[in-house]
Design a binder for these strands. Structure first.
Lengths: 348, 348
DNA sequence: CTGAAAGCGCTTACAG
DNA sequence: CTGAAAGCGCTTACAG
């Protein structure tokens, strides 16, 4: 029992205590716990009993300092925001726990990591990083790349085509599917698009899918029908309200994500019109509560939990073996509910 | 540059490198970084320059091993689930970051912490824990208490009235407020209640508030009007559907939380009735998207982000000074929208 | 199969 | 104001 610990009222058993209690050396205790090296069955049993009796668990810092492994990974987000990140976190946490990694979460909030004298997260306190789009600058990504520090990018391709593993949704085909549906099933021709933030790849590819569907159906692109949705409820609401005030004509809105779809629906109600009778609205993502809206939202389902799992699996592999898949594309699924004008779906 | 690091392709600067570069001892570098001890201005400047040039940041494990501080806290949840936890995480992360603590998140998933040979989270890798109701057993809470290891309980009182800091919502008065509203403004007399999980304090106190309001208005308690909501959309939906099939009469439903309120609304629609024209529904929490429902949900707003902030502030204080407020009660606010039958509210 | 010993990168009395 | 040295709790060659 050391003085420091005692002064804090904490007296934790160390590997030394376990060794003494089991009448072996600390090296043997270490071998038993880490299941490396040969240990006689009887010895190993004694050690496990000692561990259990002393309620011993290895000190993470000591282990990390010696072994150069923190058994910890970091999840970087630009800021904590709910609808999309939660299923992602769920998938990540699930695999992290199963793989024996602790999970650190950190919001970068536009504060450069390297500029801080005591960096909040990085190679000094994790074995690898999961980087959600928007959380790191290209420069910061390059910093980790040059260090050969394991990172996996989520919803963002590697800059300069570097070999950094990336997980993406099949945005273009998903977008095409839902616009095809609006055109082929419902006969809409004037379909507005609410685009997401300019720099986001998800947004770019969804827009491409929208164009592709229009083109395939010989519908000319009308730039007046393309507005800022910003993947944001309030921004979308304002855009759609303005459209309606300007008497812009459209019979359906393809919102770049569900957040903006909800903003669109709210705007349409604000203006005294109905969804989908007057204007149909569809979204993208299928996040929390879209099924429980009235009308239930037709959207493209992204396998977000699976994305978190895949990302974490790739990171674990990268840390442990040095290799991982450079590009993982996750397929999307068209979810037809009522906001597009369909009424006879049985699913919920 | 050591062999281990080189083999991983990583060569991180250490405090020794900084010391050499600045022509001082490692002790001095340590003093500069931690701003303890006296250091001459010129010396300190040289050290900072060296740190910046070498892109040095202290190795967390080494620091933790030596100083007995991990500068990390853990957030324990029973499982990752969205609506309530996200604003909580947001508040927690905000204060953790500002206070210089890293944040570990871990879902206990009913797996006892102490039973695991390598414990995923605890006194060996954090300085303190934020414990969300349902994530730890009483025995585990007692384990940390006896160790004098700092923990703060969220939405749960300390077992055996121990002196463990706790953060709670003012559930009873919040529930009373919203039931009062249903009775006094809308004249409803037959108000059903969807209770939450039996063991949750939040649920218990909301039920007490419901009784108190009924009593204050001389409305007898009808146990037929009380059913399982379980703070769960699907459970509530089934309960309300059954009520309606059994021709139970009620003109309003007070759901124990927003999740069950949404289940109730869905059930009422399933049965071909309207909210609020046929049956009014109100919830509790004011989580994500309740404002954007149709009809917008009347509910009691819990200051969830603030709860996360308060909890983290208490934990930091407890870690650093050993003292904290034993009980923090956060006031709630009645949010009147349309699902109760009100129509002329201006807010959104 | 087992142990003695070096050392991971820091902090902190202690001495000056 | 500064430095030399001990030591935090582990893991890992090395030797036997």
């Amino acid at each position: 029992m050391n003085i420091d610990a005692a002064s804090k009222g904490i007296s934790r058993a160390t590997i030394k205590d376990v060794a003494k209690h089991a009448n072996v050396s600390v090296a043997t205790v270490s071998r038993v716990i880490n299941k490396n090296g040969q240990v006689a069955k009887g010895t190993s049993d004694r050690v496990w009993i000692a561990i259990s009796e002393l309620k011993y668990t290895p000190h993470a810092a000591a282990k990390g300092l010696r072994s150069h492994r923190t058994q910890t990974v970091g999840f970087l987000v630009p800021e904590i925001s709910a609808p999309f990140q939660f299923p992602l976190l769920r998938g990540i946490e699930m695999i992290a726990r199963k793989s024996g990694y602790s999970l650190l979460i950190h919001a970068t909030e536009d504060i450069p990591l390297l500029s801080q004298p005591l960096r909040p997260i990085g190679e000094h306190n994790t074995d690898g990083l999961l980087v959600l789009v928007g959380s790191l600058t290209e420069e910061e990504i390059l910093y980790f790349y040059r260090l050969k520090f394991p990172i996996v990018l989520i919803c963002q391709s590697a800059p300069q085509s570097l070999d950094i593993p990336t997980i993406l949704f099949e945005n273009k085909s998903g977008a095409k599917k839902i616009v095809d549906h609006l055109i082929e099933v419902h006969g809409y021709r004037r379909i507005a698009f609410l685009r997401g933030p300019a720099k986001m790849e998800d947004s770019y590819w969804r827009e491409q899918g929208y164009y592709e569907s229009l083109k395939a159906h010989q519908i000319p692109i009308d730039l007046n029908l393309i507005g800022m949705g910003e993947f944001d409820e309030e921004a979308a609401r304002i855009t759609v309200k303005n459209w309606m005030k300007e008497k812009l004509e459209f019979d359906a809105i393809f919102a770049g994500d569900d957040e903006s779809a909800i903003g669109a629906i709210l705007a349409i109600h604000d203006m005294g019109k109905r969804v989908p009778q007057d204007i149909a609205v569809v979204g993208f993502d299928d996040v929390y509560l879209t099924h429980a809206r009235i009308p239930p939202l037709t959207t493209v389902r992204n396998p977000i939990v699976e994305m978190g799992q895949k990302a974490m699996q790739q990171l674990v592999q990268l840390i442990q073996t040095g290799i991982a898949d450079m590009k993982t594309l996750l397929p999307t699924e068209l979810i037809i509910r009522h906001s597009c004008g369909c009424t006879d779906n049985t699913s919920e």
